[in-house]
Design a binder for these strands. Structure first.
Length: 573
DNA sequence: GCCGTTTTCGGCCCGACTGTTTTCAGTCG
């Protein structure tokens, strides 16, 4: 059992207890513990005894004992009994927006309704009307919520949500009276996926801003409309909250609604310790009615004795301690990126030609593009036979002679075959400047076997970069089972670069592991894995993710000049 | 269930909004 699975169980215990109507603080204790478990520094098997948990905040003797039982036996009678005491379908009902544990408990106990399906049916029969605290409106909203669930499953890719948010911002910023307009929430933190979009505004004419917001062409339905908060659902299914605050509140609100929740809790704790109360309206000296006047997030952090923490880092993952010590990283920015590695042409499954990429690179003032089409095993993607690969290399050589400010690097995205070998013989691989080795088949191998397979590919002296290391598709497919620690160690030992693939569905390597990789001394490559010219823009997402993984420019291969990249590629060969 | 440099008992972040109510409970972030 890994930490993530363990944390999920405690999270579920918290929810089950809520459904049972337990003391909310007890529920919260389990929820906190879940979060703590997920970010434990030490491997689970190092915890042998309750005393080993001493000093870990949020885990007392009772939860420590439950963790030990789970790790030792894989089971927890307390959890099993709790789960068995409630119908399975009850949990699913909590995904309905506006429908929480109290309501779920009420419909279950009073009406015997125990699943989303049954709940939908009960609504259609008007049976919720008879329950105390329920009415026609509630019933109607539940039905809408169920429709929403069917449509969207409740989460969206960062890329989709970001595009929608930028579109909204673009049209709202010109509304008369608008002084500030910013995206907050998990979108501002560059989370892999987001549930909704939070927009924060200051306006001298709030009513007209709200009007423009709720009547925007992207809006399908107005969920709520208040003086300071309005909420809509877009046609793509995502919810957007617009909050309007005063000029003075803005930095505090921006900070508050950017979160994360865990980051905020730690920050508020710190404020309390320093004799302040921090909320979305201000920073208040003990018992004071008026907030300290601070006009930026920087100023608030400073008052709390911290250097500025970029939004991507606000996950309560050590950023507050680092800000206190002044040791936060100088994060990579879009401007640091000098070139692009990993683009597919029309030789395999891309649309753009070699020449298209060369022209586009010039237009973008990009120093180089690393061409890496699929290898022959990827027949579904029109992978290159050795003959076609050699032909492409000739074409690149010819182009490079003509090009002035752009350099095309000759590469391949080679499948890692099930036995861990690469997809061409050495005499072909030797002709390339770089090799991205990726798994595209047999995803369901057992963890040990898959780890061995990938490690073998990384030990191959021709491998330069490990492509999309886990193979996950966000909101779609879990990555293959993998010992990521072993992969990172191997990369460090053999000087293999690890890709941060910025296809919106992948964002793989995950930012948490990006941080582990760079701490182990592994270099990262931010790759759009482009299949056409537009997809070169995905690099922006990758930069955001690299920032979230604490990357400085020197951690990333493609912040280097073409000449320096060439040196590194040559040294590896 | 967890925690404690005023506490080993009594707190635990808290405000907006909705929908149900006649002063509040539930949900959400």
């Amino acid at each position: 059992m890994n930490k993530k699975e363990l944390a999920a169980i405690f999270e579920e215990i918290a929810t089950l207890l809520e459904l049972k109507g337990e003391n909310p603080f007890k529920c919260n204790a389990y929820r906190n513990a879940a979060r703590t478990i997920e970010t434990l520094d030490h491997p689970l098997d190092e915890f042998k005894d309750i005393s080993d948990f001493e000093g870990i905040k949020g885990i007392g003797s009772s939860i420590a004992e439950k963790i030990l039982t789970l790790v030792r036996t894989g089971h927890l009678p307390y959890y099993d009994e709790l789960k068995a005491s409630l119908p399975e379908g009850l949990m699913g009902m909590l995904d309905i927006p506006g429908f929480g544990p109290k309501k779920a408990r009420a419909v279950y106990e009073k009406l015997g309704v125990a699943s989303v399906r049954e709940l939908e049916y009960a609504c259609r029969e008007n049976r919720l009307l008879e329950l105390p605290g329920f009415g026609a409106k509630t019933q109607e909203n539940i039905l809408k919520g169920i429709e929403y669930l069917k449509k969207a499953h409740g989460r969206f890719l960062l890329h989709e949500a970001r595009n929608a948010a930028l579109g909204l911002l673009q049209s709202l910023k010109n509304i008369k009276g608008v002084k500030h307009l910013e995206v907050a929430g998990s979108l501002r933190r560059f989370a892999n996926t987001v549930k909704d979009i939070d927009i924060l505004a200051v306006s001298t004419n709030p009513a007209s801003l709200v009007d423009a917001f709720i009547s925007h062409p992207l809006v399908e339905e107005v969920v709520a409309r208040g003086e300071t908060k309005s909420s809509v659902r877009l046609t793509m299914g995502i919810n957007v909250d617009l909050r309007i605050v005063t000029e003075g509140q803005f930095p505090f609100a921006l900070m508050y609604f950017t979160g994360s929740k865990a980051h905020n809790v730690t920050l508020r704790g710190r404020a309390l310790h320093l004799g302040y109360k921090l909320n979305e309206y201000g920073l208040f000296k003990r018992d004071a009615k008026k907030s300290a006047r601070l006009n930026s997030e920087e100023a608030i952090f400073k008052r709390l004795g911290l250097t500025y923490i970029p939004p991507e880092l606000r996950e309560d993952w050590g950023e507050i301690e680092a800000a206190e010590k002044g040791t936060l990283p100088h994060l990579i920015t879009q401007e640091d990126v000098k070139g692009i590695i990993h683009a597919h042409t029309n030789y395999s499954d891309g649309i753009a030609t070699l020449n298209d990429y060369a022209v586009e690179a010039t237009r973008r003032r990009c120093e180089y593009i690393g061409i890496s089409d699929h290898s022959r095993a990827a027949f579904y993607a029109n992978g290159l036979s050795p003959e076609r690969l050699l032909k492409q290399l000739d074409e690149i050589n010819a182009l490079n002679k003509k090009l002035k400010n752009v350099r095309l690097f000759k590469g391949i995205e080679s499948d890692i075959l099930p036995d861990g070998s690469l997809d061409y013989p050495d005499e072909i691989l030797e002709k390339l400047e770089f090799v991205i080795a990726s798994v595209h088949s047999k995803f369901k191998m057992p963890k040990e076997e898959m780890t061995r397979r990938i490690i073998k590919a990384m030990e191959n002296p021709h491998t330069t970069i490990l492509g999309h290391p886990t193979g996950r598709l966000l909101l779609g497919r879990e990555g293959y089972e993998l010992d990521m620690g072993a992969i990172i160690d191997t990369a460090a030992r053999h000087g293999v670069i690890i890709e941060l693939n910025c296809q919106p569905l992948r964002l793989d390597l995950d930012w948490r592991n990006v941080r582990k990789a760079i701490e182990a001394g592994v270099r990262i490559c931010i790759s759009p894995d482009a299949h056409n010219l537009e997809e070169l823009d995905f690099t922006e997402l990758g930069v955001g993710m690299a920032r979230k993984g604490w990357c400085e420019p020197h951690h990333v291969l493609n912040t280097l000049s073409a000449r320096d990249v060439e040196k590194i590629l040559q040294a590896k060969r």
